[in-house]
Design a protein around this nucleic acid. Structure first.
Length: 883
RNA sequence: GGGCGCUUAACUCAGCGGGAGAGUGCUACCUUCACACGGUAGAAGUCGCCAGUUCAAUCCUGGCAGCGCCUACCA
């Protein structure tokens, strides 16, 4: 066989793109035809507003790991990619764009504006897809979907009409959250509350009969023009006599009544509240209770309308606030003003202060849907990982409110409702109607609004598979297996998908929900454009490679904890990939003239059996970890095995074999190394996909690609506990000698005579004898003598204790006896402490009677071990004193 | 106002009822032919504070403190 050359340095740029293309070309991401339960994941569709950030990288890395793991496990595997049209967000992007040309969307008109939006969508979509490919996502591109493509639009319309028919969609005048900047209504959870600094203004409202005035407190004086009453608590003794009286509303010529309503807090402020039903949710409810007609004071753009006195018309609310206050002051109605911090709603897309605004909107009645979703969870048909998110999920559903689904936007699914301009008939239709079905008029018009973005996203797990058609994909892959997403969209998306799915398919959309943490910078701040602390995944790939990124993220992603990183964090994965590369390079460069031979199980020596044992143990750990969504544990297991056991010990131990003159020995060790390498590539493939494929393809002992190879599982026949223990002792001996040399300031490569005196003659001493040359090589010693009969003269040698044996180094160098004795004494003190603890436990009848048998056994063996250690240390001090 | 999470080595974080761990950083030595993105050795922690449960607590329970997040209509 010829040696295989690998570049000296690991350079992922040389192969990552090539390998990805090959996978796609060979259809490796397509679900196989294998029988058995498919593993299906739908990708949370990124918004077509921007490019992928680290959060996406984390999400998709974890989905990729799962997908690759189950694919190698032999299940037909489908990972559905796609993008979301992201209504408001995308529309905002386009509006900003045309604003630079001095245009508003109204200037372009609906059709032209949508054209521009589709262009933006295409552009960002292409970038996103390129990014997903760059980071190695093994999703099936033939299944790619977009929330506004034909099939999904059909699903949206089916859903809307069907919900309407079931009486779960209604339309009405309500007070909704309204963003004046975006010009649209928002759902409750699209409003973000922030603590804003404001003022609490006290305003005096004179009694109409001239008998004085009362004082109300408000944070928004400008809304007084919408006041229809002032409320007091019915139990408030102070004001009981005022109820029913009329007040003169300052700056206007209106009069409003004093009413009693129990929602008013007696202690807060003055105990009197101005009631503005059109601009406050509480007041809205209160107004309804008292049959008060709301007065809207705002234009859709957030400026004061014609209801208000002329001087304030057209002024934005926040500015008008101070003008109104000024005017009140001037006319003597303004009382005290205090600084006041309070939570104010902001638009989650543009951060503008949200106004409660009265308008006609479409709503989904959520209670019936939420009840099904709650039941599914209570029945155990859903499982969150980590479990604590189930509380978030259930408490949201328990307190669910109706969902405002209409948006005054252009970008999105138009509401499938038509109005007849002649007879006023309203039609809710699956197919576009040509004329009014009541009066036959062709003068019909479609509702101008579009649906909330989430109205299409909530169908994602089944609409992407072809629903409402009963397609082969839908039948085969739905319900899906696992959803991986971040916790910030549990309400927006996860719970709504569950509700939609239960309502329309009767099944939960996925069984497992893995909630990732958020990616933050090292100061714990969310990565954001405005802070400039974001890390671009492509930059990481460019610098360190996609494998380094995925491995690092996975290693750090412990059970949904937030991940704090900076650019340097990825060095970890990069160094690991480099280590893998170089270990492989070493093995492949030694293939010259070698033959791959079959190594039978009985031909494995103790060291070989140990490494297979270790591989097997770690393979078991990886399987358990991934099944339980403990990604970091899986990553750690492959790291520990490959670096600590395989590279640091096994490959080092293989060197004397490889450099021997015996061809059979050389063939044997090369064959084993190649076998372990191939197994390792398979085990590591989900975590480091590109490098493992690149290496696997080059190995002379493999066929096919690693992406479709079989994933290693725990194999009982590879267990070799005894060898593992012996190798542990061997490592202990080596470390003891290295340690002693360092401590005695002896150059590490200085050859010394070492006598290892085992406590007894037996399997361990036989093992040590067999591998004494290995101990010598590892510890860079001279001759190693294994003495299991205590017959070697160890006078004047430097002693090192270990469980089961002692090492004696024959050193000529001057030893700082005092220093070494001091170290031993410190060690003795520590051991005495430990021993005392153990003895106390064993002397405690409660422990002996109550503890598990294995715990007691462990304490006993610890006791023996400590005693042995103590005994040896004391003897060693005596020996040192003689030097 | 409710709820959740976090507090372990200088930093980022695992672990979680029975002798404190990783990576980075730091110190010393090593350019030995896979890898200096390396090797060997080392220093470094009262596992936030106070109680309780237990034979045994970094781990369980309760309280407290600090930080972060979510949620809520107090004008």
């Amino acid at each position: 066989m010829k040696a295989i050359e690998l570049d000296k340095v690991y350079n992922p740029k040389n192969f990552e793109d090539r390998i990805y293309s090959q996978w796609v070309e060979d259809g490796d991401f397509r679900p196989s035809d294998a029988k058995g339960e498919p593993f299906t994941v739908v990708m949370p569709p990124p918004n077509v507003t921007g490019i992928l950030h680290m959060g996406h990288a984390l999400n998709n890395s974890l989905q990729d790991i799962l997908t690759r793991y189950y694919r190698m496990g032999g299940r037909p595997t489908l990972w559905v990619p796609g993008t979301d049209h992201a209504g408001i967000a995308t529309q905002n992007v386009v509006e900003r764009q045309i604003a630079k040309e001095g245009l508003r969307r109204q200037d372009l008109g609906r059709e032209k504006f949508l054209e521009r939006t589709w262009q933006v969508k295409e552009k960002h979509h292409d970038i996103i897809v390129r990014q997903l490919k760059k980071i190695g996502s093994s999703c099936d591109w033939e299944h790619e979907r977009f929330t506004m493509d034909e099939g999904l639009s059909k699903a949206v319309r089916e859903t809307f009409v069907s919900l309407y028919e079931r009486g779960l969609i209604y339309r009405g005048m309500y007070l909704v959250n309204y963003c004046p900047h975006c010009g649209t209504a928002l759902a409750d959870d699209e409003v973000e509350h922030q603590n804003d600094k404001g003022h609490l203004w006290n305003i005096n409202y004179p009694l109409a009969d001239g008998s004085g005035f009362i004082t109300v407190a408000t944070t928004r004086p400008e809304t007084m023009f919408g006041d229809v009453a002032v409320a007091v608590n019915p139990d408030d003794e102070r004001y009981r006599h005022l109820v029913g009286k009329m007040l003169k509303l300052p700056l206007t010529d209106r009069e409003i009544p004093v009413i009693a309503d129990s929602f008013v807090g007696i202690e807060f402020g003055t105990g009197m509240v101005k009631i503005t039903p059109a601009h406050d949710p509480n007041d809205w409810e209160c107004g309804k209770r008292h049959n008060l007609t709301p007065i809207n004071i705002l234009n859709p753009d957030g400026t004061l309308n014609d209801v208000c006195p002329e001087q304030f018309r057209g002024i934005p609310a926040e500015k008008a606030r101070f003008m109104v206050a000024d005017e009140l002051l001037k006319q003597g109605y303004l009382g005290t003003v205090q600084d006041y911090d309070h939570e104010v709603g902001h638009c989650y897309r543009c951060n503008t202060t949200v106004e409660p605004y009265m308008s006609e909107q479409w709503f989904v009645k959520m209670r019936p849907l939420a009840d099904k979703a709650l039941k599914a969870w209570k029945d155990g048909r859903l499982e969150f990982h980590p479990k604590r998110w189930e509380n978030t999920y259930s408490s949201w559903l328990e307190n669910i409110r109706d969902w405002c689904i209409s948006r005054q936007l252009w970008w999105g699914h138009r509401i499938p409702v038509w109005y007849c301009k002649d007879c006023g008939n309203m039609m809710v239709k699956r197919e576009d109607p040509c004329c009014c079905e009541k009066c036959g008029s062709k003068n019909i018009e479609q509702d101008n609004d579009v649906l909330d973005t989430w109205f299409s996203s909530w169908l994602w797990p089944f609409s992407t598979l072809g629903w409402p058609e009963q397609t082969a994909d839908f039948k085969r892959f739905f319900p899906t297996s696992t959803l991986v997403t971040a916790y910030d969209i549990i309400f927006f998306w996860v719970s709504r998908m569950i509700m939609a799915s239960l309502e329309f398919t009767g099944e939960v959309p996925f069984k497992d929900i893995y909630i990732t943490g958020l990616v933050r910078d090292k100061l714990g701040r969310k990565m954001s454009k405005s802070l400039g602390n974001g890390i671009d995944p492509l930059e990481v790939v460019d610098l360190y490679g996609a494998d380094a990124m995925k491995f690092t993220l996975c290693y750090l992603a412990a059970q949904g904890q937030d991940v704090l990183i900076d650019m340097d964090s990825f060095k970890m994965g990069s160094k690991f990939a480099n280590k893998i590369w170089n270990a492989t390079r070493y093995i492949l460069m030694n293939l010259e003239g070698r033959n791959i031979v079959e190594v039978k199980k009985e031909d494995l020596n103790d060291i070989d059996r140990w490494i297979y044992h270790s591989f097997n143990e770690n393979a078991g750990k990886v399987n358990e970890a991934l099944k339980g969504y403990r990604f970091n544990e899986g990553a750690q297991a492959v790291y520990d095995f490959f670096w600590n056991d395989f590279c640091d010990w096994y490959i080092e131990a293989s060197k004397p074999e490889l450099y021997s003159d015996d061809d059979a020995r050389k063939d044997r060790i090369v064959s084993i190394l190649l076998d372990l390498l191939a197994r390792s590539m398979r085990l590591m493939h989900p975590f480091l996909s590109f490098i493992t494929e690149e290496i696997y393809d080059r190995l002379p002992n493999t066929e096919g690609k690693v992406i479709s190879a079989e994933f290693p599982v725990f194999d009982e026949s590879l267990v070799s506990e005894k060898e593992a223990q012996f190798v542990e002792s061997l490592q202990e001996a080596v470390r003891g000698i290295r340690n002693a040399k360092a401590s005695l300031n002896i150059p590490p490569d200085k050859k010394l005579k070492v006598v290892i005196r085992t406590d007894e003659k037996g399997e361990l001493s036989e093992f040590m004898k067999k591998y004494s040359s290995l101990i010598s090589t590892f510890s860079n010693s001279g001759s190693i003598i294994i003495d299991d009969e205590k017959k070697e003269d160890i006078t004047g040698a430097f002693p090192v204790a270990a469980p089961g044996f002692e090492s004696f180094l024959f050193v000529r160098e001057a030893i700082d006896v005092d220093k070494e004795i001091a170290k031993l004494k410190a060690d003795i003190e520590k051991t005495k402490g430990l021993l005392a603890g153990v003895e106390k436990k064993l002397g405690n009848p409660n422990f002996v009677n109550n503890a598990k048998a294995e715990a007691i056994e462990k304490e006993k063996s610890k006791k023996a071990e400590f005693e042995e250690k103590l005994d040896k240390a004391l003897k060693h001090i005596e020996a040192l004193k003689l030097l």
